[in-house]
Design a protein around this nucleic acid. Structure first.
Lengths: 351, 351
DNA sequence: TGCTTAACTCAACCCACTTGAGTTATCAAG
DNA sequence: CTTGATAACTCAAGTGGGTTGAGTTAAGCA
């Protein structure tokens, strides 16, 4: 955008914008991106964010592994790292994260000072809740203030979030949506809710625990997670743990068990879609996370969209359900996106 | 609060606060509320909002009636009016609303200029959706820009909302909660969701359509609204339309049909509570609206709270479910509260 | 009685932003 | 090719909402 255009959209004078641009340019956060073509008057000098003006660190802590990534200001992945973990004990996690950070900085030639902040993803729910002890929480972290711990160790501002919320914010950056629900395939099934561009986190950051919501099946009500999650495919197939590539291969060859599971998953998803649409009135519902892209696409294509829904309207410009980013690193990249999102969106302190 | 206290909590200098207070006092929005007692130093002059500094108009349009109210800046009801309506045709509604406003102004001796804005409540969902034509929407309003229409007719800023959201905001003012879900008994069952002090409205303002969410019953899944709403009591009792007083009387005398209905309602509410808690992680869930207070209290007392919930935690300072304001005017007062809420909370324009 | 504490005022200052006039580069009509 | 309209941009002076720091007042406490 040019100065005048920015000024109009911000309600400032062009002079003010000029001053601010000069400052940001000096700090290396903005770069000229060429002159505007066509139109009357003096051609406007265009500006854009300098992708190298700063970097965001993303950290995902899993029970058995740590994933890290660095994104630039354009949201492009600069470098990623994965490391297995013997035990998720806080002290070990912290030292491993520091090591991975240093490795990534060394490899890319970046300095610690160029990191704007760190997004940290950990399995929720946070604190002692009625869902604790179901295997989804992280041993040794129940009574630890994780955000403060990382903040001190990394000497960076930290945003703590669960996997689904982080992945949702990454998708928000990519698609520019303001209202959506994000169904995230992790160990179980997570949900990120974005309303007016802001995450709906709940009072303790535990919003979006959709996995335990019951859905109707021919055999009676079952938790959504029992029909729509990686664990549920694996149990349905009965071949033990399978990684994304293995699931993708089974899907590609049209494996009977897989297609069978998909039938049940589509039925469950259809109910979840109805629920989410009627509760949140989103622009769209996005599926993403640790699932093969083909499976996500199949779910999107074959899920029956409920008619009894506020989203069943003729003037809806978005697909009601769509596939987002897939793969194992989705949440890690989303963690870093939390920092970018914070840097780029205005926050009002609510009373 | 005194100047120094305000300055600290706002991060401004005392001088800046002094200047602003002087201005607000001149405009009649602030009044001195006496000196602080006890403590060292010069006793602080306390200030509070002048309840007579402005007034908010609340309008609720129903298929067969119009309710209006005026609240002062403390949220106190100044005057209310009800008028039946033969047809909810836009032109008739507008002229009736103007008449009611003038009546209320005349009765209280207020002037039009003292009204800060109007909150308007209409039955949702807004626009053509998959839930249209189910009897909940208002004839003649489907393709009308209601907000603009009221804005022009009343020459006031207008906030348009559905009944549940409006009632939720009224409750927010009263209880000072930042995260909660509000189950509102209207014709059907509405839901208002507040996260970080802001309403979760969805992209078209239709969020919170919980009435059609299925819940499990011994006879198979039924819409929540079929078990937990005024219509459902009436159908269960089979005595035709009953007003709040009649329902309250039946409840007081322990009517068999009523207690029977309450059993089913509690079971349904229990499931709804689990759903809302796991999706939103609220501080509390509030029941309110057009139901006798006794019935709301009974529901709160006898609903089994699900254990499999993120809200089932020892350190939760709030009751998980509680009763809010009951009665027929709840949403109307909530409409006016929308204006007060807007006046008192900072809004960040999201990109 | 005198010291400490704290709220508040006064007056000078600061800085982000606006205002208004002037400059430059492009398009389009004569 | 010339001329005028259009639009982005710069320069320099001005403005207002805020800060800063010193001084004033009134209460509690030793």
């Amino acid at each position: 955008m040019g100065r005048a255009e920015i000024a109009r959209s911000l309600g400032l004078s062009t002079q003010a914008v000029s001053n601010i641009i000069a400052e940001l340019q000096e700090d290396g956060l903005l770069v000229e991106t060429g002159l505007r073509s066509g139109g009357r008057g003096l051609p406007a000098m265009q500006y854009g964010v300098n992708s190298a003006g700063g970097y965001a660190l993303g950290v995902e802590v899993r029970p058995d592994a740590i994933f890290t990534a660095i994104l630039d200001l354009h949201g492009q992945t600069v470098v990623t790292r994965r490391r297995t973990l013997k035990s998720p004990e806080p002290a070990k996690v912290i030292s491993k994260v520091l090591k991975l950070r240093d490795e990534m900085l060394a490899k890319t030639g970046l300095s610690e000072g160029q990191l704007l902040g760190a997004g940290v993803v950990m399995p929720g729910p946070f604190g002692q809740t009625g869902l604790s002890g179901l295997g989804s929480d992280l041993a040794g972290w129940q009574s630890v203030d994780a955000a403060a711990l990382f903040e001190e160790a990394l000497a960076l501002p930290v945003e703590l979030s669960n996997d689904a919320n982080a992945a949702a914010m990454a998708e928000r950056m990519a698609l520019g949506l303001s209202h959506f629900a994000y169904l995230y395939f992790g160990a179980g099934l997570g949900l990120g809710i974005v309303n007016q561009g802001q995450l709906v986190t709940g009072i303790f950051g535990n919003a979006g625990e959709i996995g335990h919501v019951p859905v109707a099946t021919p055999k009676g009500p079952l938790p959504l997670e029992a029909l729509l999650s990686r664990v549920s495919v694996q149990e349905h197939l009965g071949k033990g743990p399978l990684d994304i590539a293995a699931l993708g291969a089974l899907f590609a060859e049209g494996d009977k068990g897989m297609m069978d599971w998909l039938d049940g998953a589509c039925a469950a998803l259809s109910q979840a879609v109805g629920l989410l649409e009627n509760l949140f009135d989103p622009q769209t519902i996005i599926l993403g996370g640790a699932m093969p892209a083909g499976v996500l696409d199949y779910l999107v294509a074959h899920t029956e969209l409920p008619t009894l829904s506020v989203s069943n309207r003729a003037d809806n410009p978005h697909a009601r359900v769509q596939a987002g980013a897939s793969g194992r690193m989705t949440a890690t990249l989303g963690a870093a996106a939390l920092i970018l999102n914070r840097a780029f969106t205005p926050q009002a302190a609510a009373l």
